[in-house]
């Protein structure tokens, strides 16, 4: 089955970021297709490569990047929510004249339309949040 996941909370702050990951991994292991993981609200903070968690803790951002690489996942960070919170890719950096970008590997920034499209294209959408 084709599933999409929506994550509305940032890493470390709320367990939703972990539950969404564990769910996605389990769905992939069971042979389901993950059409898209969409990061919204503070969930966009899962897409910064500048986090430095302590060594004895999980690396939430890297974990997504790795899963994306292994399964060719589409990790989409909402552009409007990202702009507010300072998640920036190269295009956004140029467009808004910022001095840096911070998007993590495997993530891309795109519009809210990607969330609606995920709803249209997927058999099920599961939301994780606060």
């Amino acid at each position: 089955m084709k599933l999409s996941v929506v994550l509305n909370e940032g890493p470390y702050q709320h367990q939703a970021a972990d539950t969404a990951y564990n769910f996605t991994r389990a769905a992939l292991a069971k042979g389901h297709e993950i059409f898209r993981v969409f990061f919204y609200h503070d969930g966009v903070n899962n897409g910064t490569r500048l986090t430095t968690p302590p060594q004895d803790d999980r690396d939430i951002v890297n974990r997504w990047s790795q899963l994306a690489e292994e399964h060719d996942l589409d990790l989409v960070v909402c552009i409007a929510a990202a702009q507010r919170r300072g998640i920036v890719d190269e295009d956004e950096q140029k467009r808004h004249g910022k001095d840096a970008n911070n998007i993590a590997k495997g993530f891309r920034i795109s519009g809210l339309g990607q969330l609606i499209e995920a709803g249209i294209q997927s058999d099920r959408v599961v939301v994780f949040g606060d």
Binding site: L3, A26, A27, H32, R124, V125, V127, G129, D130
Partner: peptide, 20 residues
Amino acid sequence: VDYDGFVDLVVRHDATYACL
């Protein structure tokens, strides 16, 4: 249930509503 069971539940129902 475990996470596998969670996935099965999502598949088995017509839609999921997260009552956040």
